[in-house]
């Protein structure tokens, strides 16, 4: 029925790198807590060995301090690989990728229409409201925090149990809903809610790493969209802000990674003999 251009099997490489990254940032050795990890990983996790950049960013805003090093981290990482952190290093993205394998092959919401919500989450909640209220508001609703810190801390430290209030249960309920959603929808948190993803998203347009689709060979079979963990039709927007640069679609011979420091093949200047 479908002329699938993607015939190669999914490589285990990305899964292994994701697992390794999750293990390294949650190694239990708090030696690097001064250093922000580029992905979303709660530093209140009992095993966390690095700081969460979103939590740290909000802390700087609360302290009315300019987050120089964090802006540097975002620009340096985003400038080279765009959103690849989401696709390769983020433990919470990894969990959602694993959940997506359980559910039905055909997922709900195969669109990028709600992606503005993650920018709203970044600008309204993590930046403006956090600055105005003087408390890290995104952390309070962060499902990654509920999973990595809230639940383990309450298990490890019985003294905290008497303090559990409405907000904690609300977080648990939203986490459960998100887990259920991740089985039916590809990466719902990353696509619609993650403020850190919103930080890296615009870098896809300007990063050194780019995706390129050869229009002469692409049959628009949607094979790339099927293997894409964020349900993106890559041939439409190879450098979309929704792309998490996992490179699964490069299994299709029409899609390739280019590094912008090389000459752009589509540039008309290339015809000049040199």
């Amino acid at each position: 029925m479908i002329a699938m251009a993607i015939t190669k099997r999914a490589s285990a490489r990305r899964t292994v790198i994701q697992a390794a990254s999750a293990a390294i940032v949650n190694s239990g050795l708090p030696a690097l807590k001064a250093c922000p990890f580029p992905g979303l990983n709660c530093y209140a996790c009992p095993l966390a060995s690095m700081a969460c950049p979103m939590g740290s960013l909000q802390n700087f805003l609360v302290l009315r301090r300019v987050p120089i090093a964090l802006v540097g981290l975002f620009a340096a990482v985003g400038g080279v690989v765009g959103r690849a952190v989401c696709g390769w290093a983020c433990p919470f993205g990894f969990i959602q990728d694993l959940l997506a394998r359980i559910g039905p092959r055909r997922k709900l919401l195969p669109t990028q229409k709600g992606s503005w919500m993650r920018y709203a989450m970044l600008i309204l909640v993590a930046l403006i409201a956090t600055y105005a209220v003087g408390a890290p508001l995104f952390c309070k609703i962060c499902p990654a925090g509920a999973l990595e810190a809230g639940i383990p801390q309450v298990i490890l430290r019985p003294g905290l149990r008497s303090l559990i209030g409405v907000l904690f249960w609300a977080k648990i309920v939203s986490l459960v809903l998100l887990v259920a959603a991740a089985i039916l929808i590809k990466r719902p948190f990353c696509r619609f809610l993650c403020p850190l993803g919103a930080v890296y998203s615009p870098f896809n347009k300007v990063s050194l790493m780019r995706l390129e689709v050869d229009d002469t060979t692409c049959t628009r079979c949607d094979g790339c969209k099927r293997v894409c963990p964020v349900d993106l039709a890559v041939y439409e927007h190879p450098n979309s802000d929704s792309c998490i640069r996992c490179l699964e679609c490069t299994r299709c011979p029409s899609v390739s990674v280019t590094w912008a420091h090389r000459s752009a093949p589509t540039s008309p200047v290339r015809t000049v003999e040199h």
Partner: peptide, 28 residues
């Protein structure tokens, strides 16, 4: 494949746990 991945994750978690436990020094 899924089972493999889950097992791998579990293995990592179990292998990492003693290191984690000792490093965490659950003290209050």
């Amino acid at each position: 494949k899924l089972t493999g991945v889950v097992l791998l994750a579990l293995l990592l978690a179990v292998a990492g746990a003693p290191i984690g436990q000792s490093a965490m020094k659950i003290s209050t």
